[in-house]
């Protein structure tokens, strides 16, 4: 599977209700070390209710400058959330289906 196949796919819950679009895919590099860098394991997907174009990730990081560009982009991505791999039932280029009773996590990064 290729990453950009997933980016921009619609995200729906198990009843088919649309929740937004995949705006990013999160990975963690934390397994036992490989040759140079450990494996990058998929943590989950970032879902944005409005737009898939992540652009700058302002909504996930504490950056507030330059005003008002930062504020504008944050506002475009308000309400975006993270869904973990365990809660994903199907991934495809058109649609990502979540499992029943999925949990929405904050999409912020630890910067």
């Amino acid at each position: 599977m290729i990453l950009t196949d997933v980016l921009g796919s619609d995200v729906v819950d198990n009843s088919g209700q649309r929740l937004g679009e995949v705006s990013d895919v999160r990975f963690a590099v934390d397994a036992s070390p490989g040759q140079l860098l450990s494996k990058a394991r998929m943590v989950g997907i970032v879902v944005s209710p409005r737009t898939a174009s992540s652009f700058l990730g302002y909504e996930r990081r504490g950056i507030t400058q330059p005003w008002p560009v930062a504020q504008l982009l944050r506002w475009r991505h308000r309400g975006s959330f993270l869904v973990l791999w365990e809660d994903i039932a199907v991934i495809g280029p058109r649609e990502v289906v979540l499992r029943p009773g999925f949990t929405a996590y904050e999409s912020t990064l630890a910067f």
């Binding site: 963690a28 590099v29 209710p49 409005r50 309400g79 929405a104 996590y105 912020t108």
Partner: peptide, 25 residues
């Protein structure tokens, strides 16, 4: 139109120990 998830329902995310990479970002 997308269904909004109520902000109160969005939980703090578990923080993986290592480096976290958002692919697009």
């Amino acid at each position: 139109k997308a269904k909004r998830i109520h902000p109160l329902k969005i939980r703090p995310a578990p923080r993986p120990a290592g480096l976290v990479l958002d692919a697009q970002l």
